[in-house]
Every structure is written in structure tokens, then in C-alpha cells.
Design a protein around this nucleic acid. Structure first.
Lengths: 229, 229
DNA sequence: ATTAAAATTTAGACAAATCTAAAAATTTGT
DNA sequence: ACAAATTTTTAGATTTGTCTAAATTTTAAT
């Protein structure tokens, strides 16, 4: 297939830009601002413009001067492939090498650029074809297909709603360590008992244990409602 | 320790040069010629000179114009660390991902540059601290220490000598596939029955089966004499 | 001991990826 | 609508790692 031609010719930097555009543009469909890319990648807008032009040459992004950038079909496929690799490596690190979920990101950022189809397919098999990474994010399959899990932010559900904790929105080490310290993990059963009107903090019951969490915490935890299996 | 300062600041290219100098200089002790490095790395001598200067600045090599190059203690330690990573990844690919021994090199060349001490220590543990890679080459430990196995080239031993096949000298895919095709693998018991004077070819008995191999083949197979356990 | 050959280094150029500073286009506020 | 603020792009410089072509040093040969 022609659109696979340059898959192995991409530089690390190009791959990182594609990935960032994907994340900012909600699966690459939306237009992304130059400044937004620069900020997330901790680089300068002028550098972004340069790179966007190169990616445009390679048909990975749609670009019109001053009009932002979006991924082409090829760019989207490329992004999903990188994300697939990143998330599979994260599962490997946690499942096979006993990394904690707050330690995997940095290393996976390196491993995601390793180029070998056989490697990633074998890794997928070794891990028994996982569907979600350690933070609850979905892992695209070989063809880039994946289904977003039916989930809601804990901060968005009404009192008395319960469900299983299935993901985190913020997967920074700081937040993940906080969750560890407070005994909150994926798989826990969470029920909202009361929402404090004053500051939006929540009284919850988590695996039988009662605790209070701030609105910020709740707005970074995903649950899957128990009635919708 | 001061000499560890730049361990994580090395570029991929610098690491590849250090590795090549190590391999050419028999553990880095011998002086290596610019042209030899250029040939092995498929680059130009002028590029090698440029890089050598940079490595010299970083105290990784000893360099005097026109006099060749050798590794410093720091350079040697660095080389051994890269080789450790390369060989551990090779074991991983064969043991855990079912790669064959002729498929591992290319991917390991990429994986060896991943920077994470925790990653490589955990991998070592997962693999149960292997001492040799799939080609029979020794894996340095954390501190760069390893013992060369007591072994001899099959072409160098007298008639009637026997031993276990413990390694290959040439680990090119071509040679390894040839060995697969002819049912020769590490661990096989080999005994030299007769050496043909005309062309140096050998009649051997391998795991009970008789076969004839050329001198070139024999000079790329290592055996460990059975009397010296 | 010269000279020829080979190996090595220098000089200058180039591409990738970045930067700063300045210019241009777009958006926003009144 | 138009000036001001913001965003984006251009122009020109920098670093890394490479190259070619020419110059230099070392080695080998007669």
C-alpha cells in the first residue's frame, strides 16, 4: 500500500510532532494552533512552523499559512501506530518489569520510536493483546482501530452513582503518586455519597472505605457506571 | 562518581562510535585506525576524525593526530554498558518474543540506546540474569565485568577432540541461517572425526549425526572442550 | 634516503532541527 | 472600523553529524 511508504523514514522529531498534533486535535480531526504545539512540546512557535512545513511536504498534515494544522489520513494512521507502541510498552513495563504506573511514561516515550513491526506484534502477543494501558487509555490495534471505553468523569456523575474506576485523565507522575498514597487504583469500586456544595469536593466510598476527595481529583478520575456492562 | 556524569548525555551516534572502537580495539585497549572505524560504520574517514575529536573532548577516547584512537577507562565502561544492553535485549527477543537468532541484531541495535537504568536492571531480572547472548557472547554485568568463556574455534582443535558448541564468531544472518538449515545450534555436542588435508574441511559428528563442513564454517564455530568443565 | 602510496586531517559545504529577532497576518476591543 | 494585541511566519544564525575535495602526515618501496 502506497500510504505506508514513509512509515520507516520518519525521524523521531517528526513522530513527536505527529503525536502532539493528534493529542491536541482530538484524534487529529480538529485544527491545531502553532502556539499550542509549541507550548506542549516546550519549543518555539517558529520551530513548529518549520516542522509543519516538512510534515506537509510528506503529506502527513494539512496546512495553510496562519490557519492551523490537522492530520491527514496518513498522519492519523501514523499517530495511532506510535500511540499503539507507546501504550503496549507501558503495559510491558508494568506487567513484566514491575514498573509502577507513574514510572512508565518517560521510558515509553523512548521505546515508542523503535522501528520493527515484528517486535511490536510479538510484544502484543506476549502481553495477551491488552486493550488498555496502565492508565486506562485504549490501545489501538494493528490497523489503528480502537473503541473508546464508555466512561465518565467522577466529577460529572450525580450523587449515589457508583462504578468501577477505569482510568485517569491526568497521568502525570504527581497525580498517580497521589492516588497510590491514597489507595486509589484502577479496578476499585467507587460510589459518590455526597457532593459538597461549597467547594465541589466529594465524599466517596471506595472499595468499602469512606474518604473525601477534592473536585480536582474527581475531575481526573474516570468511572464506568456499573449498570452499563 | 564524576566519571558517570555524561552517561546520559551521549548521542546515539557517539554511542555507536564508542561501540565500534571497542569492538575493533579488542576491548578498547588497542589503538584503532580511523579508516577501520570508517569502513565498519560505513561512513567517511573525515567524519570519523570529526567525531573522534568530540569524543576526545568528553574524555571518552585517547587521541593524538595521525596516531589512531583508543578508549579511556570511561569510554570502556560506556562501551561495556551499551554491549550489556544490546545483548540483554537479544536474549529478551529470543526468549520472550520468539525471535530467531538471525533476527535480533537490527532491533537490538535500536534498543541498546534506550536510556533507563531501571529498565535494563529489570530486564536482567526478568531474564534471570543471563550470562551469554543468543550467539554465545558474554553479557557484561552492571559494573562492566564479564568473564570470557573458555572456548576454542572448531577449526583450531585436533582430530578426535569433542565439545559443546557454545558460540559463533560470525553472527551475520547469512551464517546463522546456514547453521539453522544444517541443524547446527548452540548446545550441540560436536566431535571432529577427520580433517581433510586438501581443503581443510572437517568430518564431524554433531549430536550423533555425521556431516562434513568447510574450513570457513569451522573457523566460525566455538566449542568448549568437554574435559574442561 | 627519497619518492610513491596510503592514511589521516583540514577546510568548506550541507541537511536537520532548533533558536532569536523582526515582519506579517489574524483576531480582538472599543 | 481601526488600532492594539496576539498569533504566526520569515529571515538568518547555530549545533550535530555528515559529506567532498584538497592538504598534510605517516608508512612503504626501491
Amino acid at each position: 500500500m502506497y500510504f505506508c511508504v514513509n512509515k520507516y523514514l520518519m525521524t523521531r522529531s517528526e513522530e513527536n510532532y505527529i503525536k502532539t498534533i493528534f493529542h491536541l486535535g482530538r484524534k487529529g480531526t480538529q485544527e491545531v494552533a502553532t502556539n499550542a504545539i509549541a507550548e506542549l512540546m516546550e519549543t518555539k512557535p517558529s520551530s513548529v512552523t518549520d516542522m509543519i512545513k516538512r510534515l506537509s511536504e510528506k503529506d502527513l498534515v494539512n496546512y495553510k499559512r496562519y490557519q492551523g494544522v490537522s492530520l491527514t489520513a496518513l498522519g492519523n494512521k501514523t499517530a495511532l501506530n506510535i500511540i499503539r507502541k507507546h501504550r503496549l510498552w507501558e503495559v510491558f513495563l508494568v506487567e513484566k518489569l514491575d514498573f509502577s504506573w507513574d514510572e512508565v511514561h518517560e521510558v515509553a516515550e523512548q521505546l515508542e520510536h523503535i522501528k520493527s513491526d515484528k517486535l511490536i506484534d510479538s510484544l502484543d502477543r506476549l502481553l495477551a493483546y491488552p486493550k488498555f494501558d496502565p492508565h486506562g487509555d485504549p490501545i489501538p490495534d494493528k490497523n489503528g482501530g480502537f473503541k473508546e471505553r464508555d466512561r465518565e468523569l467522577l466529577s460529572e456523575v450525580p450523587v449515589n452513582t457508583g462504578g468501577v474506576c477505569v482510568g485517569v485523565k491526568d497521568s502525570s507522575a504527581t497525580f498517580l503518586k497521589f492516588l497510590d498514597k491514597n489507595g486509589i487504583a484502577l479496578g476499585n469500586q467507587i460510589k459518590v455519597m455526597e457532593i459538597e456544595e461549597f467547594d465541589g469536593s466529594l465524599n466517596i466510598e471506595i472499595d468499602g472505605r469512606k474518604m473525601q476527595i477534592s473536585h480536582v481529583i474527581a475531575s481526573n478520575l474516570y468511572i464506568k457506571a456499573s449498570d452499563e456492562i
